[in-house]
């Protein structure tokens, strides 16, 4: 089997703080492998057989190599970084198109593609289904469990419904849940990873035109953005005496 995992580097949103004006303090916030991508990779590493190949690919700036390296430590055995100045400012459509071009050209014989459910920075959760549509294959979002025997079966969780489907080869899966007792990489995993080259591919290598990628290939445009200031009254109540606090709360709720 040949697995492709689409991974993204994101700022660690659990460490982002907001200043008193409501602006994000990005300084000093480390970049990490998106948690959902890590869940996806972990899922693949648990089901893979030793002879299977696990390819990770990420579109991003050169710094994204750090996250790709982590994927190698976690068990991937081939890695690509799609990086080009022209890729900057890509929306979902341009991102999916770039990733699709990679798959067509460099991994056309894959068996399954795995993604995270959504990237922790933008929360858009669009790339998996757009990529599936562009490749004209089936998609399985919110996957929680996968069983591979003669057939492939996946369990999907729609919050109000759990269902099990057969997965044809070539499908795209997005993973929504991680194992809290995930394996952490050891020293020997680290050394193994050091010996694997992360191959970088640019726009020309992918055979994409100027108007297919980045901001020029995007369909949506950000008109404006701001950090909201919350206009709540923000009353503060001393709760050292629980029964007094309880009385006040009940008055507020009733």
């Amino acid at each position: 089997m040949k697995y492709v995992i689409l991974v993204k580097q994101v700022p660690d949103t659990t460490r982002i703080k907001v200043d008193e004006n409501g602006n994000l303090i990005r300084q000093g916030v480390p970049s990490i492998l998106d948690p959902y991508c890590e869940y996806a990779l972990d899922m693949v590493c648990r089901i893979r057989k030793p002879e299977d190949s696990v390819i990770v690919v990420s579109m991003g700036p050169p710094q994204a190599k750090e996250s790709i390296f982590r994927c190698l430590e976690l068990g991937a055995n081939e890695a690509y970084l799609l990086s080009d100045k022209a890729f900057a400012g890509a929306d979902v459509f341009a991102t999916s198109r770039t990733l699709t071009a990679f798959i067509r050209k460099f991994a056309a014989d894959y068996d399954l593609i795995f993604c995270g459910k959504q990237a922790a920075d933008g929360d858009t959760a669009e790339v998996p289904a757009e990529t599936a549509a562009m490749l004209n294959v089936q998609q399985f979002c919110y996957s929680e469990n996968i069983i591979i025997s003669d057939t492939i079966k996946v369990t999907q969780n729609y919050n109000d419904e759990i269902r099990v489907c057969t997965v044809p080869k070539g499908s795209v899966l997005s993973v929504s849940i991680g194992d809290i007792n995930r394996r952490v990489p050891s020293i020997s995993d680290h050394i193994k990873a050091l010996n694997i080259e992360i191959k970088t591919l640019d726009r020309i290598a992918l055979g994409l035109g100027m108007y297919s990628v980045g901001i020029k290939g995007s369909k949506t445009k950000i008109e404006s953005s701001y950090s909201p200031r919350y206009e709540h009254s923000g009353k503060i109540i001393d709760g050292t005496d629980p029964s007094e606090a309880a009385k006040l709360l009940i008055k507020e709720v009733l």
Binding site: K17, I237, G239, L249
Partner: peptide, 28 residues
């Protein structure tokens, strides 16, 4: 009092959650 939840709270009670819950249940 520094927890980020207060940034979006209309009312912030600085106190022990378990015991306030208990008192609320008694009073209702």
């Amino acid at each position: 009092p520094e927890a980020p939840i207060h940034e979006i709270a209309d009312i912030s009670v600085i106190g022990n959650a378990d015991s306030i819950l208990k008192e609320m249940n008694k009073l209702l």
